[in-house]
Structures are given as structure tokens and as C-alpha cells.
Design a protein around this nucleic acid. Structure first.
Lengths: 208, 208
DNA sequence: TTTAACAATTGGTCAGACCACATCATTTTC
DNA sequence: GAAAATGATGTGGTCTGACCAATTGTTAAA
């Protein structure tokens, strides 16, 4: 996955990262599962413990794994990643990146909802009802939460996950606190039923 | 920046990351500049070299720094970060429905090209000409390559990177070998100039 | 049964060794 | 004198072994 074109001397810690990746998918490990100990990995892979640690530390900084002193190393839920902080630390000083994030997030929102609208009439209706209900119950209180709900329901789980990541980055910049009246929800419901993409698009961009 | 609520025992390599960050800001270091050597940092910060290395390896995996054997460690352009690949590696691992990948890829293609078409007439024209020229020169030989070229030019570098990752995963499934005649390229050029989204959409889905 | 002490496992950190690579000054060679 | 071989030095790459600290499970004592 990473460039290793000219050099046949792939760094050991990188190879460990790759091995871990394989191990995770082969053994179907999911968040919370434990990874082998540093010493065991060191033996099994025939590399020094320090190399294993370099790989672990890198993944830990990313928030992809979690290490607990005396217990072991565990896989984390990807949603807990620290990329936000990390990139904020080093990247987001660069204005361009922020725009890219916001824009791409919007692309996913629109495309995802469009996909949703291509589904059965019944499904859309019950979804719209569900949104209204949840709003009244105080479960959905912001535009972002509604968008999240819609995307999760849209059927493309990958796009939903990516959206979550982008949303993390974008958060703070977007003004998501806008008053959300029942009026708006009803309009949204109508727009969904009538497949009024234009309104939906304006709804999605309400936060900026 | 990172959570260190209960534990007063901040891991050493994390503190090194922080020190590096300060160092970078205080000394106004930019991409290409050299960072102190591992041994020097180890002394200056009063920590073991292995801890410095753990911090360096983490930042290297992220693509924030670059390490050259025998030379030293250098700051990279933040825009080259490997974040997308890393996330892809772990988000896409769970046998994500291949359909999701292909679909999302398409979303990015369409949205990216739409964005492109909202640019200046001149730009679009020269871009179309450029594609035709490169095709004749044998530089662009497949539909994917053309899409890649278009997306890279579209302006959203983040979306382009994500597309590349998705393409990596999608590759092999798509039949990209379809005969690509100059005829097709000319039609694409026309479609770009006339902003014929429908044709472009069909062009993008030609590989499946 | 409950509690206390202990042993084993695991991560956290450091120090030192050795190799490979790059650079530059020095020396040798032509 | 110019070019090529040489070697010293600095740097990253990796491994090993040591020791500390946190956690857990086992065992022995109360």
C-alpha cells in the first residue's frame, strides 16, 4: 500500500504494520480484541521487540490501537482515532485542507441522500417519520445528527464511516447550533417524499 | 492535546511528539528543513533514543516527516500526509462490501468532475486538450487513468487521495481494459466542453 | 470464605552494540 | 593539477538485554 518502489529494504516496523493488518483481517479481529504481546510478536515475526514497539506506537498515536500497561494491546474502534488532533497539530494550519474536507463531506451527503431517494417509497416514508419522531423525542437535535442518521440509513456503510471521519475534522468550524424547528423537519420530510433535491442540498449546507 | 486525564505518567514518546511540535513552531521550520538527529534529541530531551525513535516512526508513518538513512530526518510537506491510506487500511479491512467501495468511488468521480466543470471555460478547454494530447502520446491509456487525471485536476486533493485508495481496493474487480479509441476521447472532450453530465456519468461507469 | 502474599505476564524505558548509508576531507594515483 | 580511491565521521536501522511498573491469576495463610 505504501510506496516501496526502489528500495528492497522495507523498514522492519513498516512490515510489522502490514503483518498486523493481515493478522487483523485474517483473524477477523474487531474493536476490543487483544493483539499478541510485544514479545510474542517479536518472536513470531522474527524481529526485535523495538521494531514491534515502533509499529505499535505509530498505530497507537493514530488511535487505531490502545495499549494498557500490564494488560496488553487492544484494537480500538476506528471512530476513536486521534487523526483529528494529529492533523490539527500539523496540517490544518494549511487553509486548503479545511476546504477540501468540508467540500468532500458535502459530496457524500448529497450522493448518499440521492441514493436513499432511489429506494422504495415505503422505506423513505418510514424513514421520514422516524426522523420526525426522534426529533420530537429529543434524540435528533442538530442538523448534523439528522445528516448522520440519513447517511447511516442510506445503505453505503463505507461512505457513512468516511463521513464520520470528515465530520470530526469539520466540527467546530461548522455552525451546527442553528435553531432547528419542527417546521424545518416537516419541510425536510416533504422534500424527501417529493425527492426535492434542491431543498435537501440547501438543508445540507445550512451549517455554513 | 492528547488525553492524559488519570495518568500523570505521560508516555515519553508522546512528550517527544509534543516537544517536536513546539520545536517546529518556535523555529519556524517548514517542509524540507532538517530536524535534530535521534541521538542529539535523545540527549537534549534527556530520554532514551528508542523513545525518540518511537515518536519519529509514528510521525513518519503519518507522512509528516521523512527519514533518510545516513542523512537525517526532515520535515515534509503536510499536504503529503498518509492519513488517508492509513485509515483506508483499517477502515476498509472488514471485508467491506465491495459494492460500497465501487459506489463511493463513483460518487467522488461524478462530484469531482462536476466541480471541475464549474471552473473557467478556458481551464476546461485546456484540460480536455491535454487529455487528448496525453492519450495520443500513450500516457493515458485507460479509463481509470483519465479519471485519475481529471480528479487530480479537480482541485480537491483530499477527494483525489481518497479516490486513489478506493481505486486500489476496487482494482481487479473493474474491467478497465476496455478498448479506448480516440473516438471516445473526442466524445469525452465534447462532453466536458458542453458540460454533458450524463455522458460523463456513463463514461465513468464504463468499467463495470 | 476471605484475605494476603507471591509469581508470571505485559508494557515502558533505557543503554549499548553493530550494521548500512551518506558526506566530506584526505590521500593516492594518473 | 585533476580525478579517483580512501577513510573518518555522523546518521539512521535494528537487535539484545536489562530493569522498572502495572495487572492478573495463583497460592498460601488467616
Amino acid at each position: 500500500m505504501f510506496a516501496e518502489p526502489t528500495s528492497p529494504h522495507l523498514k522492519v516496523y513498516i512490515s510489522v504494520v502490514h503483518k498486523l493488518k493481515e493478522m487483523i483481517q485474517n483473524d477477523r479481529l474487531t474493536s476490543g480484541d487483544r493483539l499478541p504481546s510485544e514479545r510474542e510478536l517479536s518472536e513470531r515475526l522474527g524481529v526485535g521487540r523495538s521494531s514491534v514497539r515502533e509499529a505499535f506506537r505509530a498505530l497507537e498515536l493514530l488511535g487505531l490501537i490502545e495499549t494498557r500497561h500490564g494488560e496488553g494491546t487492544f484494537l480500538r474502534d476506528f471512530r476513536d482515532h486521534h487523526l483529528v488532533e494529529l492533523l490539527g497539530m500539523f496540517i490544518l494550519q494549511h487553509g486548503q485542507a479545511e476546504n477540501d474536507v468540508a467540500e468532500m463531506k458535502e459530496w457524500i451527503e448529497i450522493a448518499g441522500i440521492k441514493r436513499l431517494l432511489s429506494g422504495h417509497e415505503e422505506m423513505i416514508k418510514s424513514l421520514a417519520d422516524s426522523i420526525l419522531l426522534r426529533f420530537k423525542q429529543g434524540e435528533l437535535t442538530s442538523i448534523s445528527q439528522i445528516k448522520s442518521f440519513l447517511l447511516k440509513s442510506s445503505g453505503n456503510q463505507l461512505a457513512y464511516k468516511v463521513w464520520l471521519v470528515l465530520h470530526d475534522f469539520d466540527k467546530g468550524k461548522a455552525k451546527d447550533g442553528k435553531s432547528l424547528e419542527e417546521e424545518n423537519i416537516n419541510k425536510l420530510k416533504e422534500a424527501l417524499l417529493s425527492k426535492n433535491i434542491d431543498f435537501i442540498r440547501s438543508f445540507c449546507t445550512m451549517t455554513r
